[in-house]
């Protein structure tokens, strides 16, 4: 709640558009253009991005995160048209407004659990807030492993570390690419619940790209992509 309370603009437009896509077309070199449906997601709202493999889920997430550029149409995140941002402004946006979670937890293998979390404010050049790391570690029941190498923890634990890292800087949007596909039912439920919980706390918009049927009942807004 803190974050949107200290941002007066959000109080006035409680459900502003956080993510908006319109007439979006992207062409990989040497292949046919991919088109994407128009959609908007308000701040604090969650959505699932569904579709078969190859339907462009990952491409869309990369476009939303500014990792892919050179699209036609419009992609807006937190009111900013990504095509108009410079490389540096995009880095800034990714560091402060966007959190990424991937299928295979891309943790930095040479660092410990806690160091992986500390990396988020360091790379985004956000001043590390005193006990934010401990707070997130506690919340995701990771305190016990905080000084362990990330190579020595289980897949489920690693995915929790990835979530912790994504939410640490209190982003406006979390883009998750198949966050549960590699997990068993028990861990899947736990991970999606933690994601939702962490998102709710900071009024974060959650966009989950998946073909995992287990998530359909948890998030009601569905955006469906066709190959």
């Amino acid at each position: 709640m803190q974050v949107w309370l200290d941002n007066p603009a959000r109080l006035l437009f409680l459900r502003t558009q956080m993510v908006a896509v319109k007439n979006l077309l992207y062409t990989y070199a040497g292949s046919k253009p991919m088109s994407f449906p128009d959609f908007q997601i308000s701040s604090g709202e969650h959505a699932l991005l569904l579709g078969d493999s190859g339907s462009g889920k990952t491409t869309l997430l990369h476009l939303l995160g500014g990792l892919l550029r050179g699209y036609t149409g419009s992609v807006q995140v937190d009111g900013a048209e990504l095509a108009r941002l410079s490389e540096k402004e995009l880095d800034h946006l990714r560091g402060r407004k966007i959190g990424f979670v991937f299928q295979r937890n891309h943790l930095i293998s040479v660092l410990t659990v806690k160091q992986n979390l500390l990396l988020a404010p360091y790379l985004a050049e956000v001043p590390p807030a005193g006990d934010r790391v401990e707070e997130v570690l506690n919340h995701l029941s990771l305190s016990h492993y905080k000084n362990q190498s990330v190579l020595k923890i289980s897949q489920g634990q690693a995915q929790r570390v990835a979530i912790a890292r994504a939410v640490l800087n209190k982003p406006s949007v979390i883009l998750a690419d198949e966050p549960t596909s590699a997990l068993d039912d028990k861990n899947c439920e736990r991970v999606i619940n933690l994601l939702l919980q962490a998102a709710c706390e900071n009024n974060t918009t959650l966009l989950v790209a998946t073909h995992d049927q287990r998530l359909k009942s948890v998030i009601s807004k569905h955006i469906i992509l066709h190959a």
Binding site: D91, L93, H106, L107, I108, L119
Partner: peptide, 15 residues
């Protein structure tokens, strides 16, 4: 992968 992940976390190229 590490470098790409770091970029998604907001690291600049120069960094």
């Amino acid at each position: 992968f590490d470098l790409a992940v770091m970029r998604t976390m907001g690291a600049t190229r120069i960094k």
